[in-house]
Amino acid sequence: MKILITGGAGYVGSACLRYVASQGHEVMAFDNLVMGHRDATDGHPLVEGDIADTELLTKTLKDFGADAVMHFAAATYVGESVEDPEYHYRNNIGGTLSLLQAMRAAGVDRLLFSSTCATYGMTQSETMSEATPQDPFSPYARTKMAVEWMIRDFAHAYGMGFTLLRYFNASGADADGRHGEDHRPENHLIPLVLQVALGQRDEIKVFGTDYPTPDGTCIRDYVHTRDLASAHLLAIEATEPGTAEVFNIGTGQGQSVMDIITACEKVTGKSIPRTITERRPGDPPRLVADPTKLKTQLGWEPVYTSIEDTIATAWAWHKAHENGYPDN
Rank of each mutant, 00 (worst) to 15 (best):
A146Y: 01
M150T: 06
F162M: 04
R142A: 07
A173H: 08
R142L: 09
Q195T: 01
F137C: 11
N187F: 15
Q200A: 11
E126S: 09
S115R: 12
S138Y: 04
T163D: 00
Y167F: 14
Y158K: 05
A157F: 03
F137W: 01
R142I: 05
Q200I: 06
I204V: 15
I151Q: 00
G159F: 09
T132H: 09
D202P: 10
L192E: 10
D176R: 13
A173K: 11
G199R: 12
G208V: 08
G121R: 05
E186H: 02
T123C: 11
F207W: 08
G177E: 13
C117N: 12
F154N: 04
A173Y: 07
R201N: 02
T143K: 03
T143Y: 06
I204P: 01
S114Q: 12
P185N: 09
G180E: 11
R201E: 04
A170Y: 05
F168S: 04
M145S: 02
L164V: 15
H179T: 10
T143D: 09
E130R: 11
L192P: 00
H179S: 05
T209F: 03
F154V: 13
N169G: 08
Q200F: 03
H179P: 01
V147P: 05
S138C: 13
E130F: 04
Q134E: 13
T163V: 15
P136Y: 05
E126W: 06
T143C: 12
L198A: 10
M128T: 14
H183W: 12
K144R: 14
T143R: 03
S115E: 12
D153S: 13
P139Y: 06
R178P: 00
R201L: 11
L189G: 01
T132N: 08
Q200C: 04
R142Y: 01
R152D: 07
A173P: 10
D176N: 14
W149Q: 12
Q200M: 14
L189R: 00
E148L: 09
H156W: 06
R184W: 03
R142P: 01
L165G: 01
I151D: 00
